[in-house]
Amino acid sequence: MPIRALIIDDSSVMRKIVERSLRQAGIDLAPVLEAGNGAEALAVLKDNQVDLILCDVNMPVMDGLEFIKQLPGVANAKDVPVVMITTEGSESHVVQALSSGARGYIRKPFTPEQVREHVVPVLAGKS
């Protein structure tokens, strides 16, 4: 069954790179949903069911950390795993993201192998 993914990043180029990296990592994807910030993503999730969310941290309007805090309020998405993908590499950002509910944290720049390492266990429910 193809994975329904939502990719959230204010850069459309980065959204395409993340999608390509998921495919290069061998993940079978259904057509990917995209959002430019956390608020757009919440709106997308109200009308769509997804299996995986990949989310940037620093974005305008609503950043990634605020998005994962608000995610439990979306009935059909509260249990969807979120993996953060960001240039922010500090330990406090990682701790903050994971304690807010993120299931993984990938630092940019990244390789498809790193995407696979972080995403596959999350999809398998092992993270």
Binding site: T86, T87, R107
Partner: peptide, 8 residues
């Protein structure tokens, strides 16, 4: 990404 990678 260069700025982030540099500061990290």
């Amino acid at each position: 990404m260069t700025a982030g990678n540099f500061k990290n």
